[in-house]
Design a protein around this nucleic acid. Sequence first.
DNA 1: TGAATCATGTAACCGGTTACATGATTTT
DNA 2: AAAATCATGTAACCGGTTACATGATTCA
Lengths: 180, 180
Amino acid sequence: MPKQRILPFILLGIIDCHPQITGKGITNEFNTEIGDFWKASHSQIYPELKRMVADKWITVTQNDDNAKEKYYNLTAEGLEVLNNWLTQAVTKLPIHQDLFSLKLFFIKQANDPRIKDLITRQINLLKQELDHLLERKELIFSKQAMIDNHYGHYLVLTRAISRTQGQLKWLNEELNKLNK
Amino acid sequence: MPKQRILPFILLGIIDCHPQITGKGITNEFNTEIGDFWKASHSQIYPELKRMVADKWITVTQNDDNAKEKYYNLTAEGLEVLNNWLTQAVTKLPIHQDLFSLKLFFIKQANDPRIKDLITRQINLLKQELDHLLERKELIFSKQAMIDNHYGHYLVLTRAISRTQGQLKWLNEELNKLNK
DNA sequence: TGAATCATGTAACCGGTTACATGATTTT
DNA sequence: AAAATCATGTAACCGGTTACATGATTCA
């Protein structure tokens, strides 16, 4: 069996959250909101939208004001497909395709200076990431109403923050051990 | 520019840790040790080994006892390439291509029962993962000498354990909030 | 009106997976 | 000796990326 494609469901989810969105708008979502845990480029998105229109999961309309922009909306069937997908259980954990772990893995001696280098740099990367996430939380969820109406999104963001903080804590502890 | 291929470096790292390893042995490494953060199938590994022999990064020898097994070792150049790669800084965090976050992201209301379902199942998955990781730590690193001689591997494993525990803690807390 | 940009679309390429294939080795 | 398995190898396919292309719109 060919393995399950995820992209069409993501597009359904985005269109559900942003009715009347354009292809470009969807592309932007991948650069901002969703970008932390999924990537897709416009050259992948446009053909996919075409297929989904053909499958009657979404509809496309054009505005007379701007001849080239296309606006997408869910059909009843599309919404059903989305909800069905959301209901399906997740049965496998993702693998963390993680260069940091990978390089660390192959370094044998604790006193190899590259271990300290790797950890120090990873700390810096994670600090930037944490700042970015906290900024986004502040920006998007400063009002309680936004939390209530986008609770899943809120959870995902706070989870990412918690995870990043946890990693930073661990890395700092290890760095201290190495410095002793 | 085409993006950096990682697989050859992983193979170098594996062969460095396990001189005289076979192609099959390398394949097994991906099912056990490295499997948590990288996947590769034998049909990807064999052609890659061939290329690496052609590039003189590794050597291949055959044993008279078993005509079909091939044994691989690093050349001086291969070791240099590996060490050079390990020294290069990691400049980007991996994206977490994570179905759990993705589905959560699209569920809007906190009282949607699918949130609780997702979290409960994720907890179960992570518990299994944690057991597995703790077992491996016990198995591989019960002796201090193993820690000292494979310190990077040890760090990667303990980091994965810490991360998994952190996630479990967070998920349980969220589940409690939802149950209040 | 020409230049720059925007929104959409297409084509070539590439890494990785699944499925199939082969010859050697072990098992019964 | 036949059957099952093992270690290696190959081929077809597919999702995704990079690069290129086009027509509409905005800007100077």
